[in-house]
Nucleic acid binder design. Sequence first.
DNA 1: GACAGTATGAAACGTCTGTTTGACTGTGTC
DNA 2: GACACAGTCAAACAGACGTTTCATACTGTC
Lengths: 227, 227
Amino acid sequence: MAERTKARVARARPDEEQRDGASERLLEAAERLFVQRGFAATSVRAITEAARCNVAAVNYHFDGKLGLYETLFRSRLSDLRRRRVESVRATLDRARGRVTLELLLTAFANAFLEPLVEEGPGRHLIGLLSRELLDPHLPPKLFQHEMVEPVQRVLSEALMRVTPGLRREQAVHCVISIIGQLTQVSFRCHWAAAAEGCERLRPRLPAMVEHIARFSAAGVRACAKGR
Amino acid sequence: MAERTKARVARARPDEEQRDGASERLLEAAERLFVQRGFAATSVRAITEAARCNVAAVNYHFDGKLGLYETLFRSRLSDLRRRRVESVRATLDRARGRVTLELLLTAFANAFLEPLVEEGPGRHLIGLLSRELLDPHLPPKLFQHEMVEPVQRVLSEALMRVTPGLRREQAVHCVISIIGQLTQVSFRCHWAAAAEGCERLRPRLPAMVEHIARFSAAGVRACAKGR
DNA sequence: GACAGTATGAAACGTCTGTTTGACTGTGTC
DNA sequence: GACACAGTCAAACAGACGTTTCATACTGTC
């Protein structure tokens, strides 16, 4: 039964590209609802109602509620990872040898926050990620392998390249500090949006990015000088 | 019906202090299960089974599942706030005029992390707090008023007292940076504990506290010097 | 036209949920 | 003894849940 479904998902009608099919409508509706309410609190009936199709469609196209969730989650997760990793690589490449800590941190902070906070398909995705970490429905090491480790590796090595004297262990600690600050800001935007509409918070975002870059650059340098 | 229940909860048997009554067993079992699985994923039947009493007891003593949850949550929340606020006040009082940023931040970091990470009734409480923020079941501004604002006010004013030239807006940004780092560490301990037992992470905790104090002290000073 | 395969639909299935009911104890009061 | 009340219990309630079944269209192939 699983094979049957995989074949179905992989297949696409040759003639009309299957646009506006129930499958696409389900993905869109499910993303919106999963992000808003989480996996457990979103019922299959709510999704199919929003997608204007029958309850059975979820099992037909995605082999159940969990399959729909996994399809969405993996796609969004690799999007986010790519943006974060690329922001570091691009900054290192663009200004070879002339990269400052502030430049690197500003680029990473923007790449981290933009998809979570600005308009677009990843808006408020922070809620989905956090919920999945608190109540895992997918393989437990998926997030670790697909997001935490790659980003941590790339950013910590970039910090070491830009900061003379920074040891690997210190760099990893600094990455935790930086990610922690950015996650906190994402959360606060998420709460503010739920409470009163994110519009009031958005203008302050560039100021927060500047603060985090300044704060963290000083922190990283202090760690390197420490010993 | 609500009045009837309030009267019951407030009442205590004069003779034997009601120890080991169903009410206490329910609170203990519920805390353990709510922390582990969250509110929605914890069934009343699971709680009453763990507390070795009848399902109806939850409605009899606490006016329902939500009442039990609220009783627990408010109690733990004010515990945590008290510890955080007191750590700042105690440090300022103990070393009047001779308080360093590092001293203040180390004390706050320890007060923040200890109840969430060490053994005791608040262990892994970070999961309960995060879940409540993501999927609120209680008045939405409860967490804001009972935790965020008091801690933010006390810590930001302490930072300004200890750091000449730090403006109020900068201090608030620094508080967000500090809380963000500490929350991130709490989360990582929480995940590590779920994955493999927290024992492997505990020894590194003092090192993380030292890192956060050093990193953040430099960050705060950089913000003050910035303009 | 016959057939196979894809897609959609209404209805039902079995299970789990929080809550309620009514009966049954034990205790203290008059 | 009669009564009131707190506490506990098994049983049942009504509703929501994810999934399954079976019937029905549509589409391209022979």
